[in-house]
Write a protein that binds this DNA or RNA. Structure first.
Lengths: 359, 359
DNA sequence: CCGTAGAATGAAACCGGTTACATTTAATAA
DNA sequence: TTATTAAATGTAACCGGTTTCATTCTACGG
């Protein structure tokens, strides 16, 4: 169809005043006497440019300090090259190790990280996810506490073709990938180690556990191992508080208060173990002479505690890397199918456990 | 001027297939029988819509789970509502406290945080800044090591009207704001505290200092205080290694190796102090009975060390908050002029220092 | 019942890039 | 030298919003 139109072209001589405001690709094109397409090609397909054209444009860019606007390009390419990272808190060694690893790996692969901490609040978690969807992140790494509600939200993100990976916990979903250790097994092993060292009376100290999050799994691993060895584990030998050092302090005191004859405390995180160590010392109990202590996470400090802490190593750095790789793989292959990656745990034997069966 | 044009309008019935791909504002407009302008107004100026129009659009949005694209809107509004955070490492309690504070404050004010760690590399630092400029962050918070080169880069950002705030260090620039404590004075005070407790032979343990970064200031504060009290401080009583716990371990060993008769070690970070504590114990020196120890930062762990650590409090959370507020203030008032904010430090007296002059 | 102010809405240009397609230029073969 | 083909570049639509300005409704006073 051919129409007759009256042109209303305003013809503002686009950006004639170079002085203020950002320089656009059109300015660069004009200044170097080429079209915007050619300038764009300099960035994305430089090999198809004649060397002198390239040099000419590069000179202009250099001279005028042109900085392309990634938001604008994301609009057409539909790729923000941004990974959203959701994490409960930064103020925890194990989390910060993961964050750092995620960031470093993303940087290597050319992705940026936009991150937010939930402070363990479900509402904040939801808000964060909304923000990330608004910003059209290319993918989401979630290292918070996994609950059904959030899984549903991540699935919603998948509907918008934003893939996601959950870290720390191993879920079983066929869209949302996960990277973690076998928390049940690791906890079982740690408990068995104490038993193998001749301990019979022990208590467990852990953070808040919900239905089948990793803490629940650690709790279950402890209980099952105790039961399988015909040892007692019940609500009175398991204390669940929060994640902070002071919870370890308080928890250990509570445990010892209830069961003065415990020979070992197993703390399901090094932070709690650190608090327990302090608490035990306050109560005049020497570790490991009077009472033994096992942690979980193997944060940097645990090596330099006095005594150095026997703990379960969680390969946080490796997990971060794996998570990013899995995410990017999903992105690049446009894959929906989830992968569930289990990493190896390992008991790091140091000086905080007395071995009653040592030769 | 009136022209006759032959229309080449392609007329692709924009987004006729609602099925795949993201829903756009045009889809919502079409589905609710209004123009895109009206939909846009629903988000930015809802009061000027007739109630039933509003309800109609809202229903469509709700039904189709429309998620506006923030990158697209940033293109016209020129506001990404994003703060860039540059930090050397996440794996350090004092840094993670700051990060968390920055994030929480940003979230409160509606800003997102895009962050990157430099791992103390100048090159990474430069790359990060480039990325943030590319993404048109609304402002930059820089908590890395301040060197002239980077200041120049931040000034470049200011030219592109991206304001910035430096944290930890107090610089004197009239474009780049800063938030920090008086490191020289804090260090002087810590040293004086030891002297007031009767100590005369002490060594300093610190990370890598460069021209007038905060570590250099802490070093200077220590030296000046010693000199003013007619006590010796020289290169052989000052050990500068890196930031990690193991550097504290090694550093303390080196200090004691050179000067077996030191009665106190002042570590310019709690992390180093933590390592020193371990090291001293290894060498059979009891703290504070045989040798005293002072840290710097007041990270959470320092309260629960054995013995708990006397240290200088750095208000990291407050600093993060102040930094964000200052940044947002600059943004909102389009202010160029820098502000330099000094926060109070404080010596937290715990159990790691022996007071030879106690009554 | 009409004129008019003010409220509500629509049309279309624009933000700063990308890219399919068309066109020009250069290189190679005949 | 010319035809053919490939390489280099240009044109203009498009991404998904916002916003100015014009237009249509609505309500109210005369």
């Amino acid at each position: 169809m051919i129409l007759l139109l009256v042109s209303k072209k305003v013809n503002t001589i686009h950006n004639s005043t170079e002085q203020q405001g950002q320089l656009t690709i059109r300015d660069i094109a004009r200044l170097s006497g080429v079209s915007t397409a050619t300038v764009s090609r300099l960035f994305h397909n430089p090999s198809c440019l004649k060397p002198d054209t390239k040099a000419k444009i590069e000179a202009v860019i250099e001279k005028h300090q042109y900085i392309p606007n990634l938001n604008a390009s994301a609009l057409t390419t539909k790729n923000t090259m941004t990974v959203g990272l959701i994490i409960p808190t930064v103020k925890s060694s194990i989390h910060s190790a993961l964050i750092q690893s995620v960031q470093d790996t993303c940087a290597e692969l050319g992705y940026s990280v936009i991150m937010g901490n939930t402070n363990y609040s479900e509402e904040t978690e939801k808000n964060l996810l909304d923000i990330m969807l608004n910003r059209r992140v290319t993918g989401i790494i979630h290292a918070g506490t996994v609950n059904p509600k959030f899984i549903a939200m991540l699935r919603r993100a998948a509907e918008h073709s934003i893939p996601s990976v959950v870290v720390w916990e191993n879920i079983s979903d066929n869209e949302i990938s996960s990277v973690g250790i076998d928390n049940y097994r690791a906890s079982y092993d740690a408990t068995q180690y104490l038993i193998d060292c001749g301990h019979k009376d022990m208590g467990l100290l852990l953070g808040p556990y919900t239905t089948m999050n990793r803490l629940a799994q650690r709790r279950l691993g402890f209980m099952d191992c105790m039961n399988h060895n015909n040892l007692y584990a019940g609500d009175d030998t398991i204390i669940s508080l929060s994640h902070e050092v002071r919870d370890g302090v308080m928890g250990a005191a509570m445990l010892i208060g209830k069961h003065p004859r415990l020979t070992a405390i197993y703390a399901a995180s090094d932070v709690l173990a650190f608090g327990a160590l302090y608490s035990l010392r306050q109560m005049g109990r020497r570790v490991p002479k009077d009472i033994s202590l096992v942690g979980f996470d193997n944060i940097e400090f645990s090596e330099y505690c006095i005594p150095s802490l026997t703990t379960v190593n969680v390969p946080a750095v490796k997990m971060g890397k794996k998570a990013v790789f899995e995410l990017v793989d999903k992105i690049q292959h446009n894959r929906l199918q989830a992968k569930h990656i289990y990493l190896e745990h390992e008991i790091i034997i140091r000086d905080s456990v007395a071995n009653y069966r040592a030769t």
